[in-house]
Design a binder for these strands. Structure first.
Lengths: 124, 124
DNA sequence: ATATGTGCAAACTGTTTGCACACGA
DNA sequence: TCGTGTGCAAACAGTTTGCACATAT
């Protein structure tokens, strides 16, 4: 896997803040650094980075995938109100039945849905 | 919410087996009962059923959503090899930090990724 | 030098929607 | 009857891909 400006800037952007971005948001942001970046390139790089485990993805009920440069195990909370995604620690044991069944677990995703404090208080 | 043949057959189909189906698979299957069913109707009904909590959805890394008529809390295991989705018990405490933060959790989704026993043995 | 990445645009795929008609209550 | 659901087809949005060119190694 070759080292290109595009890939480097995408990864730098995703690592800069502990937030979660769609491909389109990444495209818009990174284009300020790499003006004629194309969306196809964003998708291709996100694919590579996912495969290499340099980023993770969050599938919400939303129609698009969100990407996360913070790759330590953690759970996500998706707010029904403001649609923000929050990180939370993950203290979870893989159900022993999975291992008993002879399955090998490579990764796990935990997503909570509900209302964050702000939206709950504001009744959004 | 009105009681229609289409809705009833979709729900019956999803409840018949403890499996997970895409909208297209549901469409194909239910069309044997309701010959001129349309895919739009399938999507509209899946939307209603989800809202009413009569079914749940599983977002895998796949591009389409899978629907599940078994709605007791449980985790899903998505096999990288055969792409099958398996059910497992969910024994998980919501991270206390979520509640401490004043967030209200309405639902949670836990998905494991890896290889099921067959695919692991067969090295698929 | 050469294989891999890029930009661009077109293609693809799952999903949504507007409309006229059908049907459940 | 009247409001909601349906079938159909077209529209949509996110994502993928083929191609010719560029670039990292």
């Amino acid at each position: 896997m070759r080292d290109t400006v595009q890939k480097r800037e995408i990864l730098t952007f995703l690592r800069a803040k502990r937030q979660h971005y769609s491909a389109a948001q990444i495209y818009d942001a990174v284009r300020t650094k790499v003006p004629n970046l194309s969306l196809g390139t964003v998708y291709r790089n996100l694919g590579h980075l996912l495969e290499d485990g340099e980023i993770i993805s969050v599938e919400t009920s939303d129609k698009c995938v969100y990407y996360d440069g913070f790759i330590q195990d953690h759970a996500h909370f998706v707010c029904d109100g403001c649609k923000n995604i929050f990180d939370f620690p993950l203290k979870m044991d893989i159900a022993s039945e999975v291992l008993d069944a002879g399955f090998s677990v490579e990764s796990e995703k935990v997503v909570y849905y509900g209302k964050c404090k702000n939206c709950r208080d504001a009744r959004i």
